[in-house]
Design a protein around this nucleic acid. Structure first.
Lengths: 156, 156
DNA sequence: TATTTACAGGACCGCTGCGGTCCGATATTG
DNA sequence: CAATATCGGACCGCAGCGGTCCTGTAAATA
C-alpha cells in the first residue's frame, strides 16, 4: 500500500499547525493535542521525536513548548517523513545493503534505485510551507514546486 | 519508511523473469522458485495472486504454469504494486474515506491528495519492460518515460 | 527555595498485519 | 488412471506499530 504510518501523518499535521502559528510563541503538547483532537501522550511522543531529529526546537518548563526549528519553506516533506519513520525507500536493499541474498544477482536492483531517487526527488521539492494553505485561497499557488523533472533525479 | 512489502518485491522480480522468458512457454512455480532462490510456497502464493489480479495467465496440469497476461510494455509498476498490496496511497483517507475523524477539518488532506496522484502518476509511466534491462546494456534507454510532469498529475 | 509546568527518555503492552507453510480440490496431460 | 500444477483458503509465529505510563530534568514564578 505504500502507506505513511499514522505517527508520520500526525507529525505532519502538527508541523503544519505550528507553521500556521502566527506569533512565534512556543506551543505545548497539551495545547496542540486538544486543538488537533488527538490523545496527549501520542502528540507528546511525536513532538519529542521531531525535536530530537532537529525539525522542532523545544523549550522546557513553564511557558515552554515547541516551535519550528527553521522556516517552513526550508523544511521538506521527506525530512519530516524520514524523521518519523526512517529513510524513504521502496526497496530494502537501498537502506540495508547486504540484507538481501539476491543483491548481487538481482537485475531489478538498479532500476529500483533510480525509481527510489525519482520519488524522493519529487517529494523533496515540496516544503512544509506548501502544505500550509490558508483555509481560504487554496487555488492560487498549489504546491509551488510540484513540477519536477524526474529524469534528472534518475541521473543522480 | 514507505517500503514495498517483501511479497511485492518478490512479485516484481518474478514478473521480470517471466518477461525475460524468450519463448512463451509457461513457467511453473517450482521452476521459478529455484531460479530466483526463493521458497516454493512463497513463490506459488505470489504467482497465484498475480494471476488472480489478471497480470499473469495460468495454465493448470502437466506442462502448466504461468505466462504474462499482456506485453511487458503494457504492464505498469503501479499495477503490479496494487495487485500485490492494494491501492497505492500515502494517506489513509485517500483509500478509506471516513476512517479518519479529522477528515472534514483536515487542512492537509487536499495537498496530500495531490502528492499521492503525483507519485502515482510518476510510477505509472514506468512499465515492466523498463525494468527488464538486458544484463549488458543498461545505459542506453534507462526507464524510458521517466521524465514526468508532476504538475499535470496534480491537476487530475 | 519551593512549586508548578512542561519536555526527555525509555520501558511496556496489546494487537494487527505480514511472511511463510500446508492442505484438499480441481484441471490438464499422456 | 496417474502424474503434474495451479487454486483457494486456513493456519501460525512474530515483528512492528499505536498507544500508555513513569521517572528525571529544566525553566519560570512567587
Amino acid at each position: 500500500m505504500i502507506r505513511l504510518s499514522r505517527i508520520t501523518d500526525y507529525g505532519i499535521v502538527l508541523m503544519v499547525r505550528l507553521a500556521q502559528n502566527p506569533d512565534d510563541e512556543a506551543r505545548n503538547a497539551r495545547n496542540l493535542a486538544s486543538e488537533a483532537d488527538l490523545p496527549v501522550p501520542v502528540v507528546s511522543k511525536v513532538l519529542k521525536t521531531l525535536a530530537r531529529e532537529g525539525l522542532l526546537s523545544s523549550q522546557r518548563g513553564s511557558k515552554g513548548g515547541y516551535t519550528l526549528a527553521r522556516n517552513a519553506e526550508d523544511i521538506s516533506v521527506p525530512e519530516m517523513i524520514t524523521a518519523l519513520e526512517g529513510p524513504i525507500s521502496l526497496t530494502e536493499c537501498s537502506v540495508h545493503p547486504g540484507a538481501c541474498s539476491q543483491e548481487l544477482s538481482c537485475d531489478v536492483r538498479e532500476p529500483w534505485q533510480r525509481i527510489n531517487s525519482a520519488v524522493h526527488g519529487a517529494l523533496s521539492k515540496i516544503t512544509l510551507a506548501d502544505l500550509t494553505t490558508p483555509e481560504l485561497a487554496g487555488s492560487i499557488v498549489p504546491l509551488s514546486a510540484l513540477r519536477v523533472d524526474l529524469e534528472s533525479a534518475g541521473l543522480e
